[in-house]
């Protein structure tokens, strides 16, 4: 029983360490000269559930600076969001956040 308890504790510690070491990922949308600005805003609202004002602000950041980090978080979810954005043809990349 003692051995079992020790193994369980060790596993939990390893899992915790792995979780804390997993870097978040940025979902980045890049500007393109073709896609309508109103469309970009609507896609942000739809994909992330952002308010119209937040979606518009992010769209303007893309338009003015060439790119915007539109979401940051766990890799799996970042990939899901990137896939949704690319399904609407927004120019989207993923970037691991370095420590």
């Amino acid at each position: 029983m003692k051995v079992h308890a020790a193994t369980k504790e060790q596993t939990e510690t390893e899992t915790s360490a792995k979780t804390s070491l997993a870097s978040p990922w940025n979902v980045i949308v890049h500007d393109d000269p073709v896609t309508l600005m109103g469309y970009v805003t609507k896609v942000f609202e739809r994909v992330f559930g952002y308010s119209e004002s937040k979606a518009h602000r992010l769209m303007m950041e893309v338009h003015k600076t060439g790119r915007s980090v539109v979401w940051t978080g766990a890799r799996e979810q970042a990939e899901m969001y990137a896939q949704k954005l690319q399904s609407h043809h927004l120019l989207t990349t993923l970037e691991k956040v370095e420590d």
């Binding site: 990939e79 990137a82 896939q83 690319q86 989207t92 990349t93 691991k96």
Partner: peptide, 18 residues
């Protein structure tokens, strides 16, 4: 279907799954 990840391994994962 643009290149999405900077690292080759990540890009291959993306090409395979997404």
């Amino acid at each position: 279907l643009p290149e999405t990840c900077a690292e080759q391994q990540d890009e291959e994962h993306w090409r395979e799954h997404a």
